[in-house]
């Protein structure tokens, strides 16, 4: 049975059951990656367009591989090679895409709400691959998948999301997703990078990293955008990493079986010390690997599976 919704735009709108369905489906999809012939015919004859208005390596590749392993025809459109450079509006791009009858459009866009906007223009399913600082639901789903795989469960686990919460779509999607599956969520970062009323999303707020990570099961570090320094949000990389960088000595205060996550790409030595990123508790590469399985599951559930009802 597939998802009954047309689009996947945000974790905020998913139910816990839908999240479970996606994660369960991803488990069987993950087996494809272990095969000699990495191809199943689930999306044969379906067209997937990856429409990327922002630079991205892992997310775009992940969707491309997911589509290809499911036998979909995959087209990649990026800003450098499209009519976007000619100033075409997102609405007109949407109408143009619609005329080519895609089944799924994956959108990465710097403006919050862009995926919702495009979804209204298109009969095709739209998957939000990150819109501004709003949401990045497939990242949250692959994070949940990775946590469940390692811990065997989600409910009752405690996670700390650390860094620039204000500008992070990964943080927002994970907050919603983790809360829905019964996890406890903390956010930590400099006061300048914590958005107002974030506690109303059901999270505990910290500005002290050591206290935030003291008794959590998962530490999720966010990538620091270096250019935020110019905006006055932190004084220097040096001070940022002194206060909010995850280092081995800091980890000593955490649980012995704590798991370290990062959506990538990482700034080694800034938000995360190399020995932590490469250490035994790091799930960073598992996240990348599972991203393909989770995206296969989504593509299948939105476009390939027999629809419910």
């Amino acid at each position: 049975m597939g998802l009954t919704r047309k689009d996947l735009l945000r974790m905020q709108e998913l139910t816990a059951d839908e999240i479970r369905l996606i994660l369960d489906t991803a488990e069987s999809m993950k087996q494809v990656a272990g095969r000699d012939i990495k191809k199943v015919p689930a999306l044969r004859g379906k067209t997937l367009i990856n429409l990327f208005y922002e630079a991205s390596t892992r997310t775009r590749m992940s969707f491309e591989i997911a589509g290809k392993w499911l036998s979909a025809d995959v087209i990649n459109v990026s800003t450098s090679s499209s009519s976007v450079a000619k100033g075409e509006s997102l609405k007109d791009t949407g109408l143009t895409l619609q005329a080519m009858h895609p089944d799924i459009v994956v959108l990465r866009h710097p403006a919050s709400g862009a995926a919702e906007f495009l979804a209204k223009q298109l009969a095709a399913s739209v998957i939000n691959a990150g819109d501004g600082a709003h949401e990045h639901p497939t990242q949250a789903l692959l994070d949940l998948f990775t946590i469940r795989e390692k811990k065997g469960r989600l409910e009752g686990l405690k996670a700390a999301i650390v860094g620039d919460i204000a500008h992070s779509r990964v943080a927002r999607s994970n907050i919603h997703g983790m809360r829905k599956v019964g996890m406890e969520v903390r956010v930590a970062g400099p006061r300048t990078m914590l958005p107002c009323f974030i506690d109303r999303l059901g999270v505990e707020v910290f500005t002290d990293l050591e206290r935030a990570i003291a008794d959590v099961d998962i530490i999720m570090m966010l990538r620091l955008q270096i250019e935020r320094q110019q905006a006055g949000l932190f004084p220097s990389l040096r001070e940022y990493s002194r206060l909010f960088g995850l280092t081995l000595p800091r980890l000593k205060g955490a649980k012995s079986d704590v798991l370290i996550m990062h959506p990538g790409p990482i700034n080694r030595g800034v938000e995360i010390a190399p020995e932590v990123a490469d250490g035994p508790y790091s799930l960073i590469l598992n996240q990348v690997e599972n991203g393909v399985a989770v995206r296969m599951a989504l593509l299948y559930l939105l476009a390939g599976a027999p629809q419910a009802g």
Binding site: G113, E135, R172, P195, C196, F197
Partner: peptide, 13 residues
């Protein structure tokens, strides 16, 4: 407005 809606929608407040 910088408030709960800007925080949820990820829009600059």
């Amino acid at each position: 407005h910088e408030g709960i809606v800007s925080t949820e929608l990820g829009l600059h407040g």
